[in-house]
C-alpha cells in the first residue's frame, strides 16, 4: 500500500526512496520546498490527516537538521515519517500551523530547543519551557549538557572512585 502511494506521489513531490520500517510504517525524504504541497495532498486526498508529531534530529556532523513530520492514516493504519533536511546554519522552514493549528506548539518548541525558525508561526518567540535562556538552544548536539551541569551545580564533596585495573596495578605490580 505504502509502495503504491509512494509511486503515485513521487513524480509530483520529488520524493526520495521509500524506506519501509515495517508493514505500517515507512519513511521518505523530500525537498523542503515541496513539504507543504505534499502534506496537503497527503491530508486531503490520501487520508493522512493526523499529524502525530513534528520534531527535529540534529545531524551535527553532516551540518543538517532533519525535521520529521509523522503522518498517520488511521483508517488504513499507515504511518509515514516525512523527512526534510535543513541546512544547519540557516535552520529555517515553512510553517504548517495553518494546516494543523497544533503544529504551532511543535514549531515553538523547535525554535526554543533547536533554534529552527518557522516564519509566520504564531507566538514563535514566546518562551515555551525555558526562562531567560541565553545559551545555545539546548537540544542541539553541540550544547554539552554535562558541561552545563558541571558549571551550574556542585558535585557532592568527598566522592572518589578507583578503576579496578589501575588499582590492582598499584597494589600488585606498581613497577609494571
Amino acid at each position: 500500500m505504502m509502495r503504491d502511494l509512494h509511486a503515485l506521489l513521487t513524480p509530483r513531490h520529488a520524493l526520495g526512496p521509500l524506506e519501509i520500517r515495517r508493514e505500517n510504517l515507512a519513511f521518505v525524504t523530500l525537498p523542503a520546498s515541496n513539504l507543504r504541497g505534499f502534506l496537503t495532498e497527503l491530508r486531503d486526498t490520501q487520508g493522512f490527516s493526523h499529524l502525530v508529531l513534528l520534531t527535529a534530529v540534529d545531524w551535527l556532523e553532516e551540518g543538517q537538521f532533519q525535521l520529521t513530520y509523522m503522518m498517520n492514516n488511521r483508517a488504513r493504519d499507515l504511518t509515514l515519517g516525512v523527512r526534510v533536511m535543513l541546512d544547519r546554519t540557516t535552520a529555517q522552514m515553512d510553517s504548517i500551523h495553518d494546516l494543523w493549528p497544533t503544529a504551532a506548539t511543535y514549531q515553538r518548541e523547535l525554535k526554543e530547543m533547536f533554534g529552527i525558525t518557522f516564519p509566520g508561526s504564531p507566538r514563535l518567540d514566546e518562551e515555551f519551557i525555558l526562562e531567560g535562556w541565553t545559551d545555545l538552544p539546548p537540544y542541539r548536539r553541540d550544547f554539552d549538557s554535562l558541561a552545563y551541569s558541571q558549571q551550574t551545580y556542585a558535585e557532592r564533596p568527598g566522592r572518589v572512585t578507583h578503576d579496578p585495573r589501575e588499582y590492582m596495578k598499584s597494589k600488585l605490580y606498581p613497577g609494571g
Binding site: D163, P164, R165, E166, M168, K169, L172, Y173, G176
Partner: peptide, 11 residues
C-alpha cells in the same frame, strides 16, 4: 573490568 590484567604475567 580489567581484573585479568594483573593475573597475566606480562600484564
Amino acid at each position: 573490568c580489567g581484573l585479568c590484567v594483573a593475573t597475566c604475567p606480562a600484564h
